[in-house]
Design a binder for these strands. Structure first.
Length: 423
RNA sequence: GGAGAAAUGGCAGAGUGGUCGAAUGCGGCAGUCUUGAAAACUGUUGAGGGUCACACCUCCGGGGGUUCGAAUCCCUCUUUCUCCGCCA
């Protein structure tokens, strides 16, 4: 969430920049400012009341000590009124503060200056394209047909034991999946990211920390009996390592990577675009997360982009990079680059990575700070990206590497798979 | 799952109703001394709100209560430890 102080100091700028997201934020911002003013007013009144009753309490204590019980008891009577008004004031304070926080939760991050205006994914800006789209032979198939033909992914079996969108990987399919995970993790750790294995469920506070709550409440699976959420991405547990943490400047850069399954309800998705591996309720992903000094975060962001590029080059998959427009930018992000791999048989682009800089938006919710040179606590910047999401990479490999003889395994994966063709 | 114990500042650890935001030690930072460093000594060292700056207010795991007054008493939740049970 945005800092109230920042909104106070940059009101017009915030409104102007949120317009890039097609949001008329002026009414909300005005409300924030008036609530904030109200909150501070009530706070001051409450403070004064408490100060007075603290003073009285001390005096009463002193009177008792010096044996003047009668005077002390007389004074006690005076405190009742103060108590009553401080009770009222603190209720009022709570109300106002809660209202303010709830409102702040509804205001998305301010986009970076480079974010283009726009309404939907059609307005995203392609900034880079690389890799050759292979000429497919006559009779080439989409990945879900290939999965069936070579018996490497069983969607029906998954539907039987769990439901639609929970595939079962078999044989060489399962092995390829594991190869990709290992390859990604090795690649990330070689680039300086420390590997973690994390819980696949998180508590409510973590959900709020990264912004999955309350904005995406309905998208997460909730385990009611224990009030836990299945993670939609490793970003949530990993970034929350740093919730309520004050770092030293020397701790930067912090680079983490983690493989986890990701669980998404995807309520409202339907149709041909969710076929096969295109959109699942459970999928595997290797995530990279960075915690950075504000001065270095965009440099780090570029570094993450280069890193993901390198992986896709290794895999020799045709891909492009988009700079997301204001309308397509996720709630918490200031700047996001999407990587899309070309699905040759479907003749469409599939998102396989989303690399974002959240600046202080998550850090403010999480109270993730560092001590600067003057000893002041400042909010850090958080970033993350996929490196990479498995199913669509797998779809890309199956479709782009298909031959009449079978599916050729990309060179870099062979040490991990132990075979070079699926036939 | 059952029984018991505990949770205090970066760490260790005092504090059982009043002047305690909290002794002491370690660590960190600054200074003195030194060619430099170490040692020694001196000072300093939590977070949030608020203010031009002070004042002032809040925070001793979380929430609630008793009291004029709570780190200290009561209730509740969470977590950790010990013992028993169960178990990959």
């Amino acid at each position: 969430m945005l800092q109230v102080q920042f909104i106070r100091d940059h009101k017009d700028e915030v409104i102007k920049k949120l317009a890039i997201r097609n949001i008329d934020a002026a009414p909300m911002i005005e409300k924030v400012l008036s609530l904030d003013e109200e909150r501070r007013g009530v706070q001051t009144k409450l403070d004064n009341t408490l100060a007075e009753s603290n003073k009285l309490s001390k005096e009463i204590g002193n009177l008792f000590k010096s044996g003047k019980a009668a005077e002390a008891n007389e004074m006690k009577a005076k405190t009742a009124e103060l108590k009553e008004s401080s009770r009222e004031l603190s209720e009022k304070l709570n109300e106002t503060a809660n209202e303010l926080t709830e409102l702040l939760y509804k205001i998305p991050n301010v986009p970076h200056p480079s974010v283009p205006a726009g309404n939907s994914d059609e307005d995203n800006e392609e900034i880079f394209r690389e890799g050759e789209v292979p000429e497919l032979y006559e009779g080439a198939l989409p990945h879900w047909e290939l999965a069936k033909k070579y018996d490497i992914i069983d969607f029906d079996l998954g539907a039987k034991i769990t439901g639609a969108g929970f595939p079962v990987y078999k044989g060489k399919g399962a092995r390829l999946q594991r190869a990709l995970i290992s390859y990604f993790l090795d690649k990330n750790t070689a680039a300086g990211y420390e590997e973690y294995q994390v819980p696949h469920m998180v508590n409510e506070a973590s959900g709020y920390g990264t912004g999955s709550l309350p904005d995406k409440e309905g998208q997460m699976y909730h385990v009611g009996a224990d009030d836990l959420y299945l993670i939609p991405t490793a970003e949530v547990p990993v970034t929350n390592f740093f919730r309520d943490v004050i770092l030293n400047e020397s701790d930067f850069p912090i680079q983490c990577t983690a493989y986890t399954p990701c669980f998404r309800r995807e309520a409202g998705s339907y149709g041909a675009h969710v076929r096969g591996l295109n959109r699942l309720h459970q999928f595997d992903k290797v995530e990279i997360v960075r915690i950075e000094h504000p001065d270095k975060s965009y440099e780090a962001h570029e570094g993450m982009i280069e890193h993901v590029k390198e992986i896709l080059r290794d895999l020799k998959l045709p891909y492009r990079i988009l700079r997301l427009c204001g309308g397509d930018l996720t709630f918490t992000s200031a700047l996001t680059y999407d990587f899309e791999v070309y699905s040759t048989a479907q003749e469409r682009w599939l998102e396989i990575s989303s690399v974002s800089n959240f600046e202080t938006f998550q850090a403010n919710r999480m109270k993730l700070r560092y001590k600067d040179a003057d000893g002041k606590n400042m909010l850090a910047h958080t970033l993350n990206g996929s490196a990479l999401a498995l199913p669509r990479v797998l779809a890309g490999i199956l479709e782009n590497y298909q031959t009449p003889e079978g599916i050729v395994i990309p060179e870099v994966l062979r040490p991990y798979t132990g075979f070079d063709i699926i036939d």
